[in-house]
Nucleic acid binder design. Structure first.
Length: 415
DNA sequence: TCTGGGGTCCTAGGACCC
DNA sequence: TCTGGGGTCCTAGGACCC
């Protein structure tokens, strides 16, 4: 006998905008956009009233204002988003410990083991929605199904402020008429390619042999997409997933990549990244920089160290070298629009890492910086930041060349 | 519509090893 | 010495998600 899982996908509607309307009643029922000047002129989230005019997340503020002249811009309160998102997740934990949070405003719940306590999956979904609205005041949409993927499709269909339950056995009929764009993993490019093949609905995709679209999407994507269209999804709800990379980036409009600019920007970004790495107790081996040019084309350069690290000076210097290489390879590009870096190949910063340094017979060619000194500096910085906040001090010049987004917004944005 | 920041996964070629 | 096959790691790019 096959055990059926019962999965909820819960998604807070227009999360940032809903929080603003919750905290300031004067904004309720008005078209508002979170973002604007502090976020590089980009709309991070739009209320449903604004969406009715076509305003979307990711859109430039100017464009949004054109679509909706009465649009109100609010600057956003990131700490409040975090607090309220956490409060919602805490309510979820009253129903089941099996909560997989996939972003600030979204989570999967496996309620298979909670049915004897709280009733059917649909009952649990209704109770969860009621409690979140009564206790927090935010609308939560939920999809209920036997797989994660289908639950997510269902929650998209349920929005705004709705509940959609896909009964076991009814999966095929539910999915068939829906557009392929609702499938997880189908973005603009894939959608266009499939449309060219005459495939527009999930049902049409389900009837397609993977071999027929393999050359379009690659073997892996073709197979998994057809599987999803047929509701073949055996992923389980995972309570904790460890991060695979930590990064930071900064858009700069249109800047001449002088050495001073490159060094100071990468210094700022490196400190953000290494501080987060160290606060998680992580170190990483591979450093990747990303350089985006004025025309929005982008390149990456990476380097893998012999030993994992979270040291600011070491990582910053490697980022500068990689960035110089990338710029050198593209002499025709005179301006950059973004610099970014990411540390991957993560591992726990346990004793092994430190021992490897202490007993290394010869320094590695690419890790000649004094590791003890580097770590001592980082530790001192961490302690100061802990007491006085992250703005308090920097390894490099206190005068940051950073001109990008407000720090509070360097986090997930709603799409 | 010329657009922010933080992530994940996949592909493909080349180096290298057994 | 020449040849083949398989596996892993690294690098660079791309698509996608929130």
């Amino acid at each position: 006998m096959v055990h059926l899982a019962h999965i909820l996908h819960a998604d807070l509607d227009a999360f940032y905008a809903s929080v603003e309307q919750l905290l300031d009643p004067r904004l309720r029922h008005l078209p508002i956009a979170v973002g604007g000047s502090g976020t590089g002129g980009v709309v991070l989230a739009a209320s449903y009233e604004a969406r009715a005019f076509g305003v979307r997340g990711g859109m430039s503020g100017r464009m949004a204002k054109q679509l909706c002249p009465s649009l109100r811009f609010v600057s956003g309160q990131f700490a409040e988003y975090q607090r309220l998102g956490d409060a919602v997740v805490a309510i979820m934990h009253d129903f089941t410990p099996l909560v997989e949070r996939i972003s600030i405003d979204e989570a999967f719940l496996d309620v298979s083991g909670a049915i004897h306590l709280f009733g059917s999956p649909a009952d649990i979904a209704r109770a969860l929605r009621d409690r979140v609205f009564a206790e927090i005041g935010l609308p939560l949409s939920i999809g209920v199904a036997t797989t994660k993927h289908l639950a997510k499709v269902a929650s998209q269909v349920a929005k705004p402020d709705g509940l959609v339950v896909v009964e076991p056995g009814n999966e095929r009929a539910f999915l068939e008429p829906l557009p392929i764009g609702l499938l997880w993993g189908v973005g603009p490019k894939t959608e266009a390619r499939l449309h060219n093949r005459g495939i527009r609905t999930i049902g049409e995709l389900a009837d397609t042999k993977p071999e027929a679209i393999r050359h379009l999407l690659g073997p892996s994507a073709a197979g998994s997409l057809v599987d999803r269209a047929n509701n073949r999804d055996d992923r389980r709800v995972e309570v904790s997933r460890r991060a695979r990379s930590v990064g930071a980036q900064s858009a700069c409009g249109r800047k001449e990549p002088t050495d001073e600019f490159v060094v100071s920007t990468l210094g700022y970004l490196t400190e953000r990244v290494t501080r987060r790495l160290r606060s998680k107790g992580k170190v990483g081996r591979t450093i990747t920089v990303r350089v985006r040019f004025a025309d929005l084309s982008a390149v990456t350069r990476s380097h893998t160290f012999e030993q994992p690290t979270a040291e600011s000076i070491l990582i910053r210097d490697m980022c500068v070298e990689l960035t110089r290489n990338a710029l050198h390879d593209h002499p025709d590009e005179r301006f950059v629009s973004l610099l970014g870096l990411s540390v991957s190949g993560l591992d726990d910063a346990d004793g092994d890492w430190q021992l490897a340094f202490q007993f290394a017979p010869t320094p590695h060619r690419d890790q000649t910086a004094d590791p003890d000194r580097g770590r001592a500096i980082d530790k001192a910085i961490d302690q100061i930041c802990e007491r006085f906040g992250t703005q308090a001090v920097s390894i490099w010049s206190t005068k940051s060349a950073h001109t990008g987004m407000d720090d509070g917004f360097r986090s997930l944005a709603e799409k």
